[in-house]
Structure formats: C-alpha cells, structure tokens
Design a protein around this nucleic acid. Structure first.
Lengths: 338, 338
DNA sequence: CACGATGGCGACAGTTTCTGTCGCGTCATA
DNA sequence: TATGACGCGACAGAAACTGTCGCCATCGTG
C-alpha cells in the first residue's frame, strides 16, 4: 500500500480530470482509500489546496466544490519523453495533419504540446526552427476534411465506451437539413476511412447495421433507453468479408508486375511483401517484380495511381481488370478532344 | 520558485530519463537548483532513494551512480488522458501501423500503452474487445516497411537535435553491402515519405545536399568533427520549389472533373477544397465537380488511382497529361494479349 | 420556511518527516 | 598510492503533516 504523502498527492493529480470534467473531495477521498491511502477527508482537502498553489488546478464556487485541472494545464508525462521521441511526435503530427479531421487532431494536442515543450527546452531551439527541419510527404492531395461537432464526437465516444445508447439527429447524404426527429442509436464500432469517421450502429430495435458519418450528425445527447448490442458482431470480419465498406479482402495472389526503373527503385525501398523479388528484363528500362500479396481494393488503387509506370503481368484476372480500367479511362478522353 | 518537497520530487521524476539513458545525482542536483530548488545534494540523494521505493526507478552499481526509470516503468501523463482520447489513440495507432516503420512506431508505444491502460481500467473492458471495435481503412496496400536499425535512428535523431556531425556507413541503392569507409554526415533535416525516412544532409566538406534513407544506414556513431550547417537551407522551399523529392508544387488551378456518382458522393464528404461545387450533368450517372486546388504530384496520383471514375475536364494542361497517361497505360496492355 | 445534513475551513497539538551538517569509508582516476 | 568525488549513516533542530473538534455557510427536503 502506498501511504506516503508524496504518493498520495501524486495519485490525486492522476485522479483529477481535466476541466470539462471535474471531481469532488468526497469522490477523490473514497478513490484514494480504495488505493490504500488511509487518511481523513480533511487531509485530502488540504492536499488539493496545497496542490492548487503549484499546479493549474481550478475549483468551482458551488457547494460540493468541483476540482479539475484547468483547460490550459500543460500535459506532462512520466517519465518525460526523450527529445528523440519528441521529434517523432512532431513528424507524426505533421503527417496526421492531412489525414485526421481537425476535431480528432484536437484530442491529440496535449501530447504534441509536450513534444514541443521538450524540444524547446532541449538546447533552447525555437520550435519554429524544428518545424522547418521536419517534413512529411503524404500520398494524398490536400483534402478539406469534414468538420465534426466536438460535442457529437464526445457523446459518440462516451456512449461507445459506456456501452450506452444515445440520441442524435442525422442528415442523410443527399439532404440539406437534418430531420426533426432524433434517432435512437446503439453504437457498435468506429471505422476511420479517408478522413471520415463512421459509427457502425443499430437504430431503435432494428437489427441491421448502419454506417453513420460523424460529421453528418448533430444534437447528440444521452438517453435512457437500454443499450442493444448487435449479436455476433465482429468488425474485422464485417469489413473484410462482408464488404461492408466496399473494401473486400481478396485472395492471396502471386503478383507479377512490369515496372519502370524509378518504380522498381521505390519498390526496393518499400517492398510489397517480404518475399518480393526484383528482376531485370531484356529491356533495361523495365524491371520485373514478383510478390505474394493480398488482392485488395487498396492494391488496385495503388496500381492505377502509378499509371503507365506499371503493367500487371499476373495474375490473369487482375491483369484483365487493370486492362479494362486503362481502356475505359483512355476511352473517356477519346470521347471528345482536349 | 517552486520550493516544496512535493514539487521538488515531482521535478526529479520529470528529470529522470528512461533506462537507456540515465542521470547522476550531481546532474540532477544542479538541474534542480536551476529550477529554484535550493537544497543540498544530500537531500536529492535521499529523494531518489525514497522515490525508488515507490516507483520503477533503477540505479547502477558504479561509482557515480546512474539513476533512471526502468524500461518497464509504465508511462503516465498528467492530467491523465480521458477515455475518449484513449479511443482516439487506439484508432491512430491502428492507422499508423501501416504507415510508419516499426522502429518509429516503437517510440510512440509508451503513449499507446497508457491509452490501453486507461481503456482497460474504464469499465474493465478488455483491450481485445476494444481493438475489435475500432478499425482504420487506409488507402495504401500493405507494404513491407523497411526496417531501420534502432541505433541508427537514435544517433541520427540525437545528432540532428544537438546539431552535431556523425559517422555512418551507407549502402547505396544498388549495392548489396555498405562500403568499408564510413561517411561524415552533417544532418540538416528529416523527410518522411511513404514509410521511408530520409535524412537530408551534407557530407564532409561538400556543400551539396544528399538524401540518405535511414534503413540503408548502419554503424552510426558520434564523431568529433565540427558540424557544418547548410547555408540558406529551407526545407519547405527545398521540397516544393526545388523539386528535391520530385514532389513539386504546381500552380493553383481551377480543376473541373467529370466524375461517377459514387466518386461524387465521396467528394461530397471529403472535399477537394473549401470552394468545391458539385453539379449535375445531362447524364444522370455523372456529376461535374469544380474546385480550386494546387496542382501537385499527389493530385495526379489521386486522379489516376480513380481510373475510369474520373475525367479531367480542365485545366487543359492537366487534361492532356492525364489523357497521355491513360493512353500510355492502355498501350502497355495492348502490347500483347492478356 | 425550517430543519437537518453536508461540506468547507480555521485552530490546535502531537507526531512525523524533512533537511543541513558532519564525518567516515569506498571507489575511480591520475 | 594519493587525491578527490561520491554515497551514506547519524543527529538535532526546523518544518510539515495529520486527526480532531467546532463553527458556519449552503443545499436539499419536507
């Protein structure tokens, strides 16, 4: 049992939530006792007062006083992150900036804030100079990621966590305004795809699974209806085998490609599979790549994105599909001049 | 000035590095004094002993004792992360799993470890069930990301942080083995692209910038040669305007696309730009999309990846380029049967 | 509106802990 | 082997921590 003054105060700091949330002395007191700190409530009160003199801790006026870390309280981790890790964080932040919706990115801010602080402290190099020395080149253009209401995000996450139903209004894809009547939603899983977060859920007493894009949701709020878990639900299976998000997993195939030299070089660095082999061909400008991969939608996207840099040789079916695509695309442009 | 016993011990915990690194009593003592803790070294010694009774803190035998958090010490953040944020972390981890090289991902593990712990504690839901309820669908196939030697990563990061030169052997793209002679590297910046980390650096006394893929580097170690900063170096400019990574930024163009209905729906969710407009066309199966975007390599990749789902109408130059690509691709498959 | 219950806090005193000082023994380095 | 740096035990004065008690404000309820 941890019983020292230091350990107790440390626990208090850990138990204190950040500002949208709050805790009371009574609550903290019982939590501490559960952790083996046998002290009176008075001591906890004094601890809080003492700690609030040193740390960004806030207390409300109302009668059961509500204690919390202020919104601005810096985030600190123990052990503190080494500078090298801070660099990684900066790089990941840069990378995710294009991939995650702003509301979600917001949640990661404390961690990145700490990374910045670590780097600033380290050798007193201003963060601006660090940002100028780190870059990430993603492979998607700069999309305008849809904005999700933070309150919606909060309610959805909380409900998923607590396994509770909630109410929300949902504006279907084609409609401009959300309907008057809120839906009763039983959240089952979250799927993140291309900047959009989808909630997989059932509605009211129906059994079928629906995909709700969070940025189309509004006026989310808790409700008292009992939660219904979808029976036999397995997200991975749902996505990959039931093609729920139109991203089926195909067979494992022996892929053979004829690729330009530049692409071959790139594949030498980022291999398609562990067993990938790159061979020369008669034509010095082209290489042959063999790899054992799973045939997915993503693979086809990637193959198409390379355009005339790559030709699928095998398997037959994939070659045919790519040839069909290529012809159809060329046909689009043949339709009229330009 | 923070002067309480609690604050001082707290600072000690923050100053203590994790196990590969370590600190001495003398060092901690001066660091604490810089932060305004006017205590004797004896007190610091006692603090460390006291703290090591409660926390996972390790000390070596040798004469200047080396203190550190053990490798296994759990990571805790203050204020502790709310469960909703923990969910986000799990999602990001899932997402990054495909995008970041394992060695880099390793560095983020402590933060994700904490996320797991928070979720486990919250309602006692096993983490396995959480992983089965969160998924991320990236738009790249499962590449085999190149493995970087952790020691190389460490030396490179540290050198970049301290603005120091270092030595390393480098195996150029085509060669099997690294040369005998190590290179003298002056690190300038890091660029992350498609799973590969490149160090932008100058070598010896030369002025030209080189790109070194970290996974091709080995036997990295510090060296005493003075660091040479590249003059007038601006990473952003270097990448975008000097086409250093073959990812030039083009002009801002008024993009006009003819897209399939499915693609139009997708673009409705993830807009190409803030001013994007989607219009009906005479043909009910096709929509017209107008957006003001920057013409980048990534944009062209993305356009190509959609294959026959999209036809570039304007600008002319881009249309011509895409038409040329489409024809070239189709020609590849016309070369012989399939 | 009155009542009781609850929560916050000042005061106090006994106890514990904290801290600077000193000195001894040991280890690393020259 | 000499020298200084380092770790640590002992000690005593100072500082803090903590439980108890009582007062008063506030809140909820009848």
């Amino acid at each position: 049992m941890a019983t020292s003054t230091f350990a107790r105060r440390m626990h208090i700091l850990q138990l204190l939530p950040r500002e949208p949330n709050a805790s009371t002395v009574a609550r903290l007191h019982t939590q501490l006792q559960d952790q083996g700190h046998a002290v009176t409530r008075r001591t906890v009160e004094r601890d809080l007062q003492e700690l609030s003199r040193e740390y960004a801790i806030h207390v409300t006026e109302g009668r059961p006083e509500l204690w919390s870390w202020t919104q601005e309280a810096p985030n600190a981790s123990l052990p503190s992150m080494p500078p090298a890790t801070a660099l990684t964080y900066l790089m990941v932040e840069e990378h995710l900036g294009r991939l995650l919706p702003p509301t979600v990115l917001e949640q990661l801010k404390p961690a990145y804030g700490e990374a910045r602080r670590v780097l600033e402290r380290h050798g007193h190099t201003p963060i601006a100079r660090w940002k100028a020395r780190i870059s990430s080149i993603p492979n998607v253009p700069r999309f305008e990621l849809p904005k999700t209401d933070p309150e919606v995000l909060r309610v959805v996450y909380e409900s998923l966590l607590r396994e509770e139903a909630f109410e929300a209004r949902y504006r279907a894809a084609q409609q401009r305004a959300a309907p008057e009547k809120p839906w009763l939603v039983h959240p089952q899983a979250l799927v993140y795809r291309q900047g959009v977060i989808y909630l997989v859920a059932t509605l009211w007493d129906y059994g079928d699974l629906r995909h709700l894009a969070l940025h189309r949701m509004s006026d989310a709020g808790p409700c008292t209806a009992p939660f219904r878990r979808a029976s036999q639900f397995d997200l991975k299976r749902y996505i990959e085998h039931e093609r729920a998000f139109e991203y089926p997993e195909g067979e494992t195939v022996n892929l053979v490609l004829r690729v330009s030299e530049a692409t071959a070089f790139y594949l030498g660095e980022t291999r398609l599979s562990r067993d990938q082999v790159i061979e020369d061909t008669r034509d010095p400008d082209w290489k042959r790549v063999r790899a054992c991969v799973i045939d997915t939608t993503q693979l086809r996207w990637w193959l198409r994105s390379l355009g005339p840099e790559v030709e699928v040789v095998a398997p037959r079916a994939l070659r045919r599909a790519m040839r069909k695509d290529a012809r159809a695309t060329a046909a689009l442009y043949a339709r009229r001049g330009g």
